[in-house]
Structure formats: C-alpha cells, structure tokens
C-alpha cells in the first residue's frame, strides 16, 4: 500500500489487515516502552491546509511512536497565504526529504492529485479532503466497533450484520462517506438519517437505506451503533435547517432517545462535539459513548496506516 486516499479503494482483506495491524499497535501502548523503532530515519510531513487539532495531533503522535521525524505545516502564516500552489508547496517539502505526506485540504480530491501527479515520490495519506473522504477516521470507527463487540477476539473479524445509523450532516461529511464505503466493505448494514437538505444528490448510489425521521429510524433499524455527525458550522452557508434548537429536537441524540436505544448500542461521534446540538450531554458522557476511545484508537489506526504506507521500500 503506497498511499491511503479513499476507503472505497480498500478491499475486505486489506481493510481487515489494517485493523489487525492497528491491534498490534494498540498493544504497544500497554508496554513498558511505548515506542517502536520501525520508521526511524523516515520523515513525515503533516500538510494541513485546513484547521484541525485532533487529527493532526493524532497523526503526529502516531508518527512519533513509530520513531519517524515529524514536520508540521499549516497553511496559516505560510507561503500558501502568499499564493503558493499545492504543487510548489509539496515539491518544496519533498526537496526537504519528506518520505510521507499526510494531507488535509479543503478541496475534494487534492490528496489524489498529490499522489498521482508525479510531483512527489512520497507516500500520501488523506487526512480529510473537502467533503469527500476521511479514511483514517472511518478505519478508527470500524476498529472501535470491532473492539467493543468482539474484545480480545477482534483480530481477523469483519463487521458482518452490524447495523450502523449515521445521523446528521451527511451532505458535508467526509466521515459519513468514508464510513459508508468502509463499513459496507466490512459487511455492516449502513443507514443514513438526515434532513433532506443535508443529504447529497444521488445518495442512492451509496447503497444505504435513508430515513428523514430519526425516531422512525431508531425504531425500525434497532441499530448496534448510532454515529452522530458534527454540524459543521463553517460549512453552513445556506439555510439547511431553521435553527439549532429545531435541529436538536428533530435530529439530535437527546437523553430520551438515548434511553430508548437497545442496551448494547454504541454512541459514536468523530468530534469535536457540538453539545446540545447534535448530541446531548447525557449521550456524550454515557458509558456507551465511545468518543474518547475513538481518539485513543485513532493513534493506533494511524500507526498502522503509516507503517503500511511508509515502512516498505521502493520494491513494494
């Protein structure tokens, strides 16, 4: 695996392989020495053209735990604000000896351009591009589900039959897209729930069920996982719903809805959470919430991805 650009590119075997390696990486954090020499001498650049705290820090922690050198680049206060192109920025970083580039970009498809344009030799990992994909988030969500449902016996398993409800702003959510593709590859049954204004055109192409009413969806699907998406205030450039209170009432995971869920149902959220909007305090802080586990698992999954994209030599 030279690059990780999209979960749509991953087959079942490859997806399970990444999750299994992430299990091994997670074991490392229980050891006396929580560091591996695996990527010693390799330089990873975090190329972030969009604000992000947790994803960048997670990738940084993952790279450092594998002994790679990390260079952080954020578009703010850089030559990009002077008008430098993606090509020139990337080639400048490559000239400094970057072996891997972790890229977040507001334009959908930017990581693919970087990977296949021939501008740079480095391995490219997509850390979120526009409203397209966020593959490592989907992988860590799948990893978190597999661990919660199968515990120590998780290795080698898929998510066949797991019913996952993805609720909220599907239109702008790269998390929803990456999850829909990955979870379906892993055998899960995915359902989108959103106001019609927050669903993309051609949602049928995802091959998922769609509901407009959260209560109806919860009752009909009896989900194993409820994944709440963040309302992305920065992308709310049109009247997608009347106001926050109405959104919370219709599509938020309130205390009442939380208590109506089946006992084993997990509550997931990619963060950062808008408490009181898409998720209530009761849901966010309940024992069935995996929000903090998702953050912890994110480091393990990103270690696995960096290992697979960067450890092997040119021959691979």
């Amino acid at each position: 695996m030279k690059h990780l650009l999209s979960t749509a590119d991953l087959g079942l075997d490859e997806a399970i392989r990444i999750l299994d390696i992430a299990e091994d990486m997670a074991d490392v954090s229980t050891r006396e020495v929580r560091k591996l020499p695996t990527l010693r001498g390799i330089t990873v650049v975090n190329l972030f053209f969009e604000d992000s705290t947790r994803t960048r820090i997670s990738f940084e922690a993952a790279a450092k735990r594998l002994s790679a050198d990390v260079i952080n680049f954020s578009a703010k206060g850089s030559s990009v604000s002077k008008g430098e192109s993606l090509k020139d920025t990337a080639q400048t970083l490559a000239a400094m000896g970057a072996d891997g580039i972790v890229i977040r970009h507001p334009a959908s498809g930017a990581p693919r351009v970087l990977a296949h344009s021939g501008w740079v030799e480095a391995g490219v990992v997509n850390a979120g591009d526009g409203t397209h994909e966020h593959p490592t988030q989907a992988l860590l969500d799948a990893f978190t589900m597999r661990r919660r449902f199968h515990g120590a016996a998780a290795r080698g398993r898929d998510l066949a039959g797991t019913r996952v409800l993805i609720v909220g702003d599907v239109l702008h959510s790269r998390v929803a897209r990456s999850n829909a593709w990955l979870l379906k590859t892993l055998g899960a049954e995915v359902t989108f729930v959103a106001p019609p204004t927050l669903l993309p055109n051609g949602v049928a192409a995802f091959g998922v069920d769609v509901y407009y009413d959260l209560d109806e969806a919860l009752a009909r699907v009896q989900p194993d996982v409820v994944m709440m998406l963040r309302i992305q205030q920065e992308r709310m450039n049109a009247a997608f719903f009347p106001n926050g209170r109405e959104y919370a009432r219709s599509w938020g995971l309130s205390a009442t809805r939380l208590h109506g869920l089946p006992e084993r149902t997990l509550v997931m959220h990619p963060g950062p959470m808008n408490r009181g909007l898409e998720i209530s305090d009761e849901a966010a802080d309940s024992p069935r919430s995996t929000v903090l586990e998702q953050v912890t698992n994110g480091v393990s999954v990103r270690m696995a991805v960096l290992y697979l994209t960067l450890a092997a030599g040119e021959t691979n």
Binding site: M1, R17, D20, I21, E23, D24, D27, V28, L36, P37, T38, L66, R155, Y307, L308, A311, A312, G313, T315, N316
Partner: peptide, 21 residues
C-alpha cells in the same frame, strides 16, 4: 514476541504484517 516492527530490513522487503505479541 513478534520482532517485525523492530527489524532493520523493513525497507528492503514488501510490507510484512506483524504478528501478535
């Protein structure tokens, strides 16, 4: 005890999957 992630020849070979320790 799996030694894969501690090998010095990782870059000379296709990626190996580690095994559980």
């Amino acid at each position: 005890v799996d030694a894969t992630l501690f090998r010095d020849d990782l870059r000379r070979q296709p990626t190996r999957a580690p095994r559980p320790t």
